[in-house]
């Protein structure tokens, strides 16, 4: 007799208790320092907030912020485009829909997923360091550093979406004599494209953020400028640049909403 059944809670209740327990234990395993604020901390926070009120909006700085945003956007677009180019066929292969037998399908899915997980678990910053060391501080290094992990993220999601299409329409196509490749284009992709597009836009936004951070390694862009301004404690400039970053992502978000709305019509 299970003890939790004696207590009157079911399997779901037991799971909840276990999760709460893990959460509580993890809280206690952390080393909580009572003095998390160092002595100069309060002043720094006040300085940062002061910077928000006294934004640097001089024309020359705004012009430079705009240019940095443009560079960051370029990197993001180039990287995501490459990621889609690699991720789309990888996703189709990784979904296993083109393999003939059940055995080869399991094998394909498993091996592709393994490769994708490995590529994905290396953060783009680590990829960036690797490429900078290997091929130098060039734009290609940054683009590859973003494109590789992002393509595996996209591929994984694409594979899931493509294989998750309701079967009855596909059966119908097969009954009309369509091969699996034709079923892919006539049956799966029309159903999968809206979700794939939506997720790709989301990843594009993430890509902008990543591209901004990547510019810390020395290529120009918003992150590079933020780092310069941070080093000189010019918080008002940092806030300006952050606002540009937020605006950039907001504009992309609005664009993606309007594209998805027009698709749904």
């Amino acid at each position: 007799m299970n003890p939790h059944k004696l207590l009157g809670i079911g399997n779901r209740g037991l799971l909840t208790l276990i999760l709460l327990g893990i959460f509580t234990v993890s809280l206690f395993s952390l080393k909580w320092e009572l003095n998390i604020f160092h002595s100069g901390g309060t002043k720094s926070i006040l300085d940062m907030l002061h910077g928000l009120i006294t934004l640097d909006i001089s024309p020359s700085f705004l012009g430079m912020a705009l240019q940095s945003s443009w560079i960051t956007l370029n990197y993001a677009v180039a990287s995501i485009s490459l990621a889609i180019l690699i991720g789309f066929p990888l996703g189709i292969i990784g979904s296993g829909i083109l393999t003939p037998s059940r055995y080869s399908r399991m094998w394909t899915i498993y091996s592709v997923r393994c490769i994708l997980s490995i590529l994905r678990s290396i953060h783009e910053l680590v990829w960036a360091w690797f490429f900078v060391v290997a091929i130098g501080l060039t734009p290609i290094a940054a683009i590859l550093a973003l494109a590789i992990p992002y393509s595996s993220i996209l591929a994984r999601i694409y594979a899931d979406i493509i294989s998750d299409v309701p079967n009855n329409a596909l059966q119908s196509l097969r009954a009309s004599g369509a091969s699996e490749m034709k079923v892919l284009f006539y049956g799966r992709l029309p159903h999968a494209l809206p979700d794939m597009l939506s997720y790709t836009f989301y990843r594009f936004e993430c890509g902008i953020r990543s591209a901004a951070i990547l510019s810390f390694i020395g290529i120009r862009g918003l992150g590079y400028q933020i780092q310069i301004s941070l080093d000189e404690l010019l918080y008002n400039q940092v806030w300006t640049l952050l606002i540009f970053l937020i605006l950039l992502i907001t504009i992309v978000d609005m664009w993606s909403s309007s594209v998805r709305k027009s698709l749904a019509k």
Binding site: N168, A169, Q171, S172, L173, A175, S176, G177, A178, S179, K182, Y186, G187, P190, H191, L193, P194
Partner: peptide, 27 residues
Amino acid sequence: VGFIHQRFDLVQNLNVVNNVLAGKLGQ
């Protein structure tokens, strides 16, 4: 053989002409 099912089984996101021409996919 051609099948007709209860649930129509058209590709919902494709337009009518593409659904109809899908009958030619075997050829």
